[in-house]
Design a protein around this nucleic acid. Structure first.
Lengths: 247, 247
DNA sequence: CGACTCCTTGACAGCGTTCAACAGTAGTGG
DNA sequence: CCACTACTGTTGAACGCTGTCAAGGAGTCG
C-alpha cells in the first residue's frame, strides 16, 4: 500500500455536509441546472470542474463506435463527481433527469499554493478511493456475473446509497440499467419481473397498468435473499503456499 | 479535473529506468522469487510492499464464492504493481510463471517526513493514473464487447506492452485470458483459431501438434485488422445541446 | 388527440458456455 | 530411459442464457 489517505470510508453522500472544506476556503461554488438528457461534460475534454448533485441524477458513460454504451456510474443527490486523476475526463456525463448541481473550478492538488490545500485534498483522495473501488468491483460484476446477480448487485447498491428507503425511486430507465450492467433492457425488465415473482421486491401502483414513473418505484422486501443472489464479491481465495523464496 | 499529476503518459515498463527515483533516496529494494502459482499478496490484506517485475509475470484477480475468477491485470517485466489508494489490497496477486521481483516497503505519500517525498510521489500518481485508466477501459470491454473484440483488445494490449515484438510470448494460459476477458477458455481458444484462419495471426511451430508452450508463441500479421476488429473505445459521443442553464 | 417514451412480454436466434474427447508436452519417479 | 500423471490447448456437439425483433399497453407532453 502506498498512499494512506484516511481510514474512514464515508459515503460520498455524507460529504455533503462539509462541501466547502473539501476544496479549501477559497473555492467558489455556483449552482447550475441541467435538464434531462443534457451533457454535463464530455469524454476527452479537460476536467475543469467539480460537481455535487443537489437534486436529480447524472450518469457517466462511454460509447463505442456503433453506439453501444457502457455506463460507468450513476450519481445521486449528495454525490460528488467530475474528479479525475489525469487532465481529461475519461467518461462523458449527462443528466438523467432535470438536475441541479453545485460546481466549482478545478481544484489542483499539486499546483496549489500552500500545504493547506494538500491537507484538504485528502478528501479528494477519499473520492478517488471510492471511484477506484467501485470500478474494480464493477469489473468483476461485468465480467463474471449472470443477469440476476448483476441486477441484485445494482439494487443493493442503489438501496445502500439511498440509505435503505422504504420506497426506492429509481431515476434511470431500464436501458440505463442495462448499459450499466452489460445487459439488454429486455433482460433487465425480465429480471425485475423474476424478482417480483419471487417476492423479493414489488412495485408501487399495482403491476398491470403502469404510470410512467412506475417500474421505477421499487420496494425491497427481502434484502437478505438479494444479497445471497448477488453472491460474494471480494471473498478471499483459498490460502496456499505463499512465502517467497528470499535471497 | 482535479489532480494534475504529470502530462506525460509513459508506460509502466519504461519506469524501469528510474526505479530508485520513484520511491525516494531512502528506499531499500530487495529481490524475491516466486515460483509458478505462488501468491504474492492477498486481497483484503494490508498493502505493504511495492513490486517491480524483473522476470516472469503476475496476475491480479478476485474470486467469487463459487470459484469464478476475474483477472484484473497481467503484469510483465518492468511493470510495477502493488500500489493501492487505500490501505488494503483489493485484488490478490500470484505468479503466472516463475517470477523474480524487486520489492520495497510501503511508501507512504502523506506520512512521509518531507516534501521531497511528495515530489517523488508524482510518479506514484502516474501509476495510479494508468491503473484507473486501464480498469475503466476494461469495464467497457467486459460490459459491451464480443468475444472476438475482447481478444483483439487483449492481443493489442499485450503487443503494445511488449513493444510490438516479432514473436509475442504469452505467459498466461487460455483460462487466464478467459478470466481476464470474461470468457470461457474454450471461447478464447476458438477465437484464436478464428484469427488464425483469417490470417491475422499465426503460431510458431506448425499448428497441428502443439508443443506445450506453443499456442503461446504468437506472431501478429495484421495489427490494423486487429485494431479494426477491436473497435473504438473512447470515442467521443455525438455532440448535442449541452450548455447548462446558469443561475 | 397524436406522437413519443418507457416498460413488459413473447418468440426466436445466436453467441458463448458446458460437457466431452483427444492430442501433445512437461514433470515425476522408478 | 520410460511409464505415468498432470497440465494445456483444440475441437465438436448440445444446451441455454441473453440478445434481438416484435407487439402491445400505459403514461406524458404539446
Amino acid at each position: 500500500m502506498l498512499i494512506r489517505v484516511s481510514t474512514n470510508t464515508r459515503t460520498v453522500a455524507s460529504a455533503l455536509d462539509d462541501l466547502k472544506a473539501l476544496t479549501g476556503k477559497h473555492a467558489i461554488w455556483s449552482e447550475f441546472k441541467y435538464s434531462r438528457g443534457m451533457q454535463v461534460f464530455w469524454e476527452g475534454k479537460p476536467a475543469e470542474h467539480l460537481y455535487q448533485i443537489r437534486e436529480g441524477a447524472v450518469r457517466t458513460y462511454r460509447l463505442l463506435a456503433d453506439g453501444r454504451r457502457q455506463i460507468g456510474m450513476f450519481y445521486l443527490p449528495g454525490d460528488i463527481f467530475g474528479v479525475e486523476i489525469g487532465e481529461l475526463h475519461r467518461f462523458s456525463a449527462e443528466a438523467i433527469t432535470d438536475t441541479t448541481v453545485w460546481l466549482t473550478g478545478c481544484h489542483n492538488l499539486f499546483e496549489g499554493p500552500t500545504g493547506d490545500d494538500l491537507a484538504d485534498s485528502r478528501k479528494i483522495f477519499d473520492l478517488l478511493h471510492q471511484n477506484l473501488q467501485h470500478v474494480q468491483n464493477h469489473m468483476v460484476i461485468l465480467g463474471r456475473e449472470t443477469a440476476l446477480e448483476k441486477l441484485a448487485h445494482f439494487l443493493l447498491e442503489m438501496d445502500r446509497r439511498m440509505k435503505r428507503p422504504k420506497l426506492m425511486l429509481l431515476p434511470m430507465t431500464r436501458r440505463d440499467i442495462g448499459d450499466y450492467l452489460g445487459l439488454s433492457l429486455e433482460t433487465v425488465s425480465r429480471s425485475f419481473s423474476r424478482f417480483q415473482d419471487q417476492g423479493i421486491l414489488s412495485f408501487t401502483k399495482p403491476r398491470g397498468p403502469f404510470t410512467g414513473q412506475t417500474g421505477r418505484q421499487v420496494v425491497l422486501h427481502n434484502r437478505e435473499k438479494l444479497a445471497q443472489l448477488a453472491g460474494g464479491i471480494g471473498l478471499v481465495a483459498i490460502p496456499q503456499q505463499s512465502e517467497p523464496s528470499g535471497r
